[in-house]
């Protein structure tokens, strides 16, 4: 192995900063944080009201995260998962429970700067209790080889009046082979939002499946995917909503922007009304960058390439 913890820490920080982040703010003592490298925890900081408890498992780490009842954290919890070797397997399990009326945000970074043959499996089990609010923003940075195999599955349950927002972003580096699954169960008057934004290049493969289960009366949920597929990218996006309770409302949306003759993309919205007082809607689009948008920018002196780049950059913001 030959790499010590300080080196690993530095490599992860460097990779974050290379992607435009001021890493120092995440490693402040006032910020609850956990830094995982490979199958070890190399940094851990708990703050009042937050309990992060890691356990080493085979090829990875499990972390039980609990936010105490009524706690409102002013600064997001930082969860950083890194892998600095070139080959290997990493399993990560996060069990997250947000107690009643607590409010918390997570900023998560997954940093795999130089992997060649690597598999990352992540499972998140989330419970947002009554009246609690949780936001989880997960951003990935991979190596440019496109040889990573990433599977991330989130199962979230939001209880009465709770709010849950989850975003997955992978737009700044190659993807490799990606499978994202988000399953969201919404209780009475609960609100949920699932968002994924990814940009595929070369021969990246993308599979995203987002499911809203509107189980509680007056629950509301949105599942939205935005995919930019360039070159020979393959993408298959499925957004599902089940209207199981009266006066629940769900919306699923998928927008795929394509560029390149060899892209292979598909989107499938699935709506199932089980309770006839539920309302479900969907929007889906696949296509090249909007012609009028291109012409508007080209009329200001941008080339077609420059205009496309600006439009895509905006879409992925």
């Amino acid at each position: 192995m030959g790499i010590n913890i300080t080196d690993e820490y530095k490599q992860i920080v460097d990779a974050l900063e290379k992607n435009g982040y001021d890493a120092s703010k995440y490693f402040d003592k006032r910020v609850a944080s956990i830094i995982i490298s490979g199958n070890r925890v190399i940094g851990l900081n708990n703050v009042p009201g937050v309990k992060l408890t890691p356990t080493q498992i085979e090829n990875g780490v499990r972390v039980d995260m609990e936010i105490e009842e009524g706690v409102a954290l002013p600064i997001p919890i930082h969860v950083c998962t890194g892998y600095v070797e070139k080959r290997g397997l990493q399993n990560v399990i996060f069990n997250i429970r947000i107690r009643k009326n607590a409010k918390v945000k997570f900023t998560a970074h997954c940093v795999f700067p130089q992997v060649e043959e690597f598999t990352h499996n992540a499972i998140s089990n989330v419970i947002v209790e009554d009246g609690a609010v949780m936001e989880y923003a997960d951003e990935h940075f991979h190596s440019d080889l496109g040889t990573i195999n990433l599977r991330t599955i989130t199962n979230a349950k939001v209880e009465k009046g709770g709010i849950y927002k989850n975003s997955f972003t992978l737009t700044k580096t190659r993807i490799g082979k990606l499978y994202v699954e988000m399953n969201l169960d919404l209780g009475e008057s609960a609100i949920g939002e699932l968002t994924s934004k990814v940009k595929g290049t070369k021969n990246d493969e993308i599979e995203i499946k987002e499911t809203l289960n509107l189980n509680g009366e007056r629950s509301r949920g949105i599942a939205k995917s935005t995919v930019v597929a360039l070159d020979e990218t393959k993408a298959n996006i499925v957004n599902i909503a089940y209207g199981n309770a009266p006066y629940s409302y769900g919306h699923v949306e998928c927008n795929e922007i394509t560029k390149g003759n060899k892209v292979d993309v598909k989107t499938e919205p699935i709506l199932k009304v089980v309770n006839d007082l539920s309302e479900l809607t969907h929007e889906a689009s696949i296509g090249r960058v909007n012609r009028r948008q291109l012409e508007t920018l080209m009329a200001k002196g941008l080339t077609e390439e420059e205009a496309t780049e600006l439009i895509i950059k905006g879409i992925l913001q």
Binding site: N290, R292, Q293, T296, L297, K300, G301, L302, L310, I311, K313, G314, I315, L316, Q317
Partner: peptide, 16 residues
């Protein structure tokens, strides 16, 4: 004129 997702007025005026 068309709308542009994610681009601020400042960024739009200066073409990014």
């Amino acid at each position: 004129p068309p709308r542009f997702e994610g681009i601020s007025v400042g960024a739009y005026l200066t073409l990014g």
